[in-house]
């Protein structure tokens, strides 16, 4: 394991890079440190932002000196272990229409910014990851659930990392030059992470489909948004489920009339359960989610 870097982000942020490499271990460690820090409720801490292999703190230097904060964080790095860390979160069924008309239209518009202008994003990522077809790629994405490893970019955007061993991780570069347009609820992949774009905007991830239900709703129209305008939380387990056009339209109707509700189940788990037996853990998640 590499040595963590503690860095000043000007006079209001401290950034801690636990590792340059993505790894479930590291993500759990960042989660464990930041949740311990939250519990300690130190004065002067304004934001605690766990991310994929790092985390960031925004603080008020009039109330806590950055060097004092950094020594506190270094202490936590030593004292916090993922062995006795428990995550209480949700398992969520996330329906996605793969190979849909909206992301297809968007990705065709920006072919000149792509590594491989002659295939679609699904075909390209399938090929470079050794799948025989885009259907096989979709199957690999939907077979095992993902951990929401970070939230950000824009409000509610979940970075998701699949809970499978490294050799089964799907990886793809981002676009050569970012698109200026990505449709709302587009489902994509970049690096080793899948995302859902909460709102339309610029983006550089490979586009595979469109999620049927929102993950961001500033007007808080449906059940899942009654407490917050964003839906995903770090530590959630998302299962992307491939749906057909008919089910997509049915879900859209319930979103629009305000009756949609995500299928979710609460779960409490330990990093060890995931790391020791990712396959068994995934199967257990799917069994319990759809029970």
């Amino acid at each position: 394991m590499t040595v963590a870097r503690y860095e000043y982000g000007g006079d209001e942020f401290v950034f801690v890079e636990l590792s340059e490499t993505m790894d479930l271990n590291i993500n759990f460690k960042a989660m464990a440190i930041t949740s311990q820090l939250k519990e300690e409720n130190l004065p002067g801490i304004l934001d605690i932002c766990p991310s994929n292999a790092s985390y960031m703190i925004r603080f008020d230097p009039d109330r806590i000196h950055p060097d004092k904060l950094i020594s506190k964080l270094k202490e936590l790095e030593q004292s916090v272990s993922i062995d006795d860390f428990e995550i209480s979160s949700r398992m969520v069924d996330v329906p996605v229409l793969f190979d849909d008309p909206w992301t297809h239209e968007a990705l065709m518009r920006f072919r000149d910014r792509h590594q491989d202008p002659d295939s679609t994003d699904l075909e390209y990522v399938a090929r470079i990851n050794g799948f025989d077809s885009k259907e096989e790629l979709i199957k690999a994405i939907t077979d095992s659930p993902y951990l929401v490893s970070m939230i950000g970019f824009v409000p509610g955007l979940p970075w998701c990392y699949q809970m499978v061993p490294r050799e089964r991780q799907i990886e793809a570069p981002k676009y050569v030059r970012p698109r200026t347009f990505t449709p709302e609820r587009a489902f994509g992949l970049g690096g080793a992470f899948t995302v859902i774009y909460p709102v339309q905007g610029a983006g550089g991830y490979q586009l595979f489909g469109t999620a049927a239900a929102p993950i961001f709703d500033k007007d808080q129209r449906t059940y899942d948004f009654k407490d917050s305008i964003t839906f995903p939380r770090q530590g959630d387990i998302f299962r992307y489920r491939s749906i057909d056009q008919k089910e997509y339209e049915e879900i859209r109707k319930t979103v629009e009339d305000g009756t949609f509700r995500y299928l979710t189940k609460d779960i409490t788990f330990t990093p060890k359960q995931v790391l020791d037996d990712p396959k068994g853990f995934s199967e257990e998640v799917l069994r319990r989610l759809y029970a």
């Binding site: 000007g10 209001e12 942020f13 950034f15 991310s51 960031m56």
Partner: peptide, 10 residues
């Protein structure tokens, strides 16, 4: 880099 948080002003 592996996606990370951006401080304001970074």
């Amino acid at each position: 880099v592996v996606d990370l948080g951006y401080p304001i002003g970074s």
